[in-house]
Each structure stands twice: as C-alpha cells, then as structure tokens.
C-alpha cells in the first residue's frame, strides 16, 4: 500500500536520493518484522496492527505534507505547532458542541491558516526576514495571543465531528484515507501543475527562477499558505481526536521539529528544490514504525529518545554524505 505511490513518483532516470527513502522505509519494515518475530510477538503482524501503526501519526503526516512545500521552496516553517494549537482551539470553541457550527468552524480555521501563511510569506519575501526567524517570531505571537485568551481545553467538538478521527470504513479509519488523499493531491500539484514546477525552480535557484520570469515571491508565499493550511487541517483533526483543543497541544506534540525531521528523512533537501511528497510520507511511516518498534520491544522512553535522535542524523547522513555541495 505504501510502495506503490513511491514507485509512481520515480523519475525516468535512476537517482539515488529518490530511492533512498524507499530503502529506508524497507529497512524500517524489515527491522520491525525481524524484531517482532525474534521477540515471538507475531501478534503484532496483523492487519489491525498495521492500521494502528499507519494511524499513529496522522497529525504529523498532515503537517509534514505542508512542511514539504515550505522546505521545497528553500524556506522552513517553525510556526506549524502554534498554528495547530490555534486551529484546534478555534475549531472546538466555534463548534462548542453544536453540529450546525461544523462548517463555519472549518471555514474559520482554514482562513486563519491562510492568513498566517500569507503573513509568513510576506514577511519572508517582502521584509526579507530569514524564514527561520520569521516563522519563529510568528509562532511566539500566535502562542501569545492564544494563551492570552485560553489557558485550558476550551469548547468541545460535537459527537458528529469526532467521526473524522474515530470513524472508519471497515478497519481503515477515515483520517488515514484522508491523509493519503491529501498526499495524493499534494503530489498532483507538485508534479502536474505550473505552480508545482515553479516551486522546484524557485527552491533550486531563486535567482535563476526570477530570471526565467517566475514571480518568485508569489511562489514562496503560496508554499507558505499551503504549509499553514495543512497545519490548520492537522489542528482540526487533532481537535476531533482530542474532542477539544488546548493552547499547548501543538507544542506538546513537537510537531514543528518533528515535521521538519520527517521531511528531511524522506529525502527532501533542506536547501530546497529537491524531494517530494512520497518521501515525506515514507518519513512519517518510518517515525510511526520506530514508535511501534520501541513499544513492542519495550524500549524505555529515554532510550527511545536517544535512538530517535541518532536515527534522524543517520538517515539524513545516508542521503547527504555523497552530496558534493557544501552545507550550512
């Protein structure tokens, strides 16, 4: 189920960095199977469990799809965690248990996401503020405004809305289908639209793209709007999953740094211009597998952290070590 999309994005020429994420994913799966068999815990090899693993990281997955756009265009977004918190709180406060408010709430949150992305993009392109600082500042501002008004779980989503997180077709949750559909849409945009190819051009070399007549500022702003929109959607999902939103849930899940980590593990280059959505999805699944492997093996939480840190470095080194370009 996960391999097919990966092959779909394979370019005509054989390139190592495109395959690296597949190799990493296969390695993670192999380690998981070996471990489960070695520990005699074959009950973890059921379909139920596969779905549980894939469903572990929906929030992270949706956020990472957006982050991929930001990183592809040679930018970065540290404000996603705050946007997730804000989106979740607004969702649950606007809905406040009323099924009739579901649509207004979603529209409000999406416009919130679009506005944040727009401001991020404008500050980065027009004021020429380094994206790291611009989005970090944005993150502080959103967090401040949010915690000025709310200091706990606020509002509630109606039972009808919890279907988004808890409903399923057979054993496959809607949210899982939604995440892959969103990834498919993102893949389509990146591969088949003008905007998609502009993103790669601008990320690869902004000056060259500008000379080629691409309105680079618009592309960067567009990427940031998509990134913040995805974070907002992730917040909506989280509100549905947690039944409510609180101002700390984004920061608590470390979605900012984790989304960046899975994007680069998936082979998208931090310098921009190379990579893609299916690599990111592979990165997300690798993270879920790691979590599950650790749970199966009963790894202590602190050891888990050590291994996770090493895996991030090792996975990125796996791609980057052969690169001839200097890195910062």
């Amino acid at each position: 189920m996960t391999d097919t999309p990966l092959t779909a994005s394979k370019p005509p020429r054989f390139r190592f960095d495109r395959h690296a994420s597949t190799i990493l994913l296969l390695a993670a799966i192999a380690i998981y199977i070996v471990l489960v068999v070695a520990l005699g815990q074959t009950r973890f090899l059921t379909l139920d469990n596969l779905v549980a693993i894939l469903g572990r990281s929906i929030t992270l997955g949706i956020t990472a799809i957006g982050q991929t756009f930001a990183i592809l265009v040679a930018s970065i977004d540290l404000s996603v965690a705050s946007v997730i918190s804000a989106a979740a709180v607004v969702t649950s406060v606007v809905m406040n248990g009323e099924p009739s408010m579901m649509l207004p709430a979603i529209l409000a949150v999406l416009s919130l996401g679009a506005v944040v992305g727009l401001i991020n993009g404008l500050v980065i392109t027009k004021l020429e503020v380094n994206p790291l600082i611009a989005t970090l500042g944005m993150s502080l501002i959103i967090q401040g405004v949010l915690s000025y008004y709310y200091n706990n779980f606020a509002g509630a989503v109606p039972a009808e809305f919890q279907v988004f997180a808890y409903g399923s077709v057979g054993i496959v949750p809607y949210s899982l289908i939604f995440m892959f559909a969103l990834a498919g849409l993102a893949w389509f945009v990146l591969r088949f639209t003008r905007f998609g190819s502009d993103i790669y051009s601008v990320g690869g070399n902004q000056d060259a793209a500008r000379l080629a007549g691409i309105k680079t500022a618009r592309v960067v702003i567009g990427a940031h709007v998509i990134c913040s929109l995805c974070a907002a959607i992730a917040g909506i999902y989280l509100a549905s999953r947690l039944r409510s939103g609180a101002p700390w849930i984004g920061a608590e899940g470390v979605y900012d740094l984790e989304s960046i980590a899975v994007v680069v593990i998936g082979g998208t280059v931090l310098a921009g211009g190379r990579g893609g959505i299916w690599g990111t999805m592979a990165g997300v699944i690798i993270f879920s597998l790691i979590d599950s492997i650790f749970n199966v093996a009963g790894v202590d939480a602190f050891v888990k952290q050590v291994l996770r840190g090493i895996i991030i470095i090792a996975a990125v080194a796996f791609y980057a070590a052969r690169s001839q370009r200097p890195v910062a």
Binding site: N49, V51, R56, E252, G253, K304
Partner: peptide, 18 residues
Amino acid sequence: AEGSDDKQIADIDDLLAG
C-alpha cells in the same frame, strides 16, 4: 507517551490491537 495526548491515544490503540 512522552507528554503528548496524541501519542497516548495511539499508544492505547497499539495496546488494544496487539
């Protein structure tokens, strides 16, 4: 769950599944 609601929900799912 390392202090995350989202993770803890997934953890309980994992425990129920296997």
